[in-house]
Amino acid sequence: MPNLREAYHGELDRDSLGLIPVAQLDSYKGLWFATFDRTAPSLREYLGEMAWYIDTFIDRREGGIEVVATHKWITPCNWKFPAENFGGDAYHVQWNHLSAVKIGFSRGATANTQSTQRMVSPGNGHALICIGPNDVGDPPMPEIDAYEREIAVNVRERLGPRANLVNPIVGTVFPNFSLLRGTSRSIRVWQPRGPEKTEIRSFIFMDKAAPPGVKRAIRQAGIRGFSPSGSFEQDDMDNWQECTQTCRGVMSRQMPLHNRMGLGHERFDEDLGAWVSDYRFSESNQRQFYQRWAELMKAGVHHA
C-alpha cells in the first residue's frame, strides 16, 4: 500500500477494512446466487420446488446450457413489471404480441385456446407459466423443431414424471431473476437502477450439447424476438414504461391495484408441488408474487 507509514502515519488498521464478504454464496446447477443476509434461508430451501422448474430450462440435457448472446439495456420502468410479466402474464400475449405472432416470429403458445396452460406458483413468490406437456412454445424454426423432436423422449426421462404434466416456458425466481423458453431462450436479471429505471441483463442460451446450427438458430431467435430490437421485447418495453407512468399519478397511487383475475379459482396441486390456476389465464401468480413482496417489505428480517 503506497505511503502507508507517511500518509496514514502507520495508524491504518487494515485488518478491519476491505471488501464486505457476502453472508451466503451458493450455486444451483451453475447459476450463482449470493446474499448479504445471514438470516436468509439456504439457497436450496429458498428455491424449494422451484428448483425442478429451473431444471426444465437449464438442465434438459447433459452438460446444461451455454450462452450464445448477451443483451444489456436500460428501460424506464419499475422492476416489478417485467418480473411479474415473466412470472405469469399469459393474458397480455394475445393482444400485446399479436403482431409478432401474425408475421410468424412466434407460435404464440400462451394465446393458444386449445392449450391446457396453467399459472403455477411453487411458493416463496416464485411463479411460472406452464403450457400443456405436448404444447410447443419454441421459435418456429425448422432446425429447432427437428432438434426438439429428436431429444423429446430423453428430456422427459431426465426431468421425470412431472414433465408429462406441464411444459414450463417462462417464469420468475422471486424476486427478479427470470427464465424464458418460449419464442426464444433467455435467462435474465431485472436490476433496479433507481426509481423508474431497470437494467436488463439477458443471456440467450441453448443446451450445450446442441449442434452448432441449432445454437445459431436460437441466437437468431433471441435477437429477433427478445433483444432490444426483438419483435416481442420492443413492445414490452413500451408497455412497462406506460404502466409505470400510469401508476405514478396522484389518483392512481391512491387506488388499490386490481389483481383479481381468477381469484378463488386456484388450488394446490400435489403432483406439481405448486398453487395452480384452474384456467389458462389468471392473476394467481401475480397474487403470490406481490404477497411475498409485501411480506418482505413489512418484515424487519428475512422470514422463510
Binding site: K72, T75, P76, S227, Q241
Partner: peptide, 10 residues
C-alpha cells in the same frame, strides 16, 4: 454503447 441506454431498437 455497451449497455444500451435506449429502451428499445424499434
Amino acid at each position: 454503447q455497451n449497455v444500451l441506454t435506449a429502451k428499445n431498437l424499434s
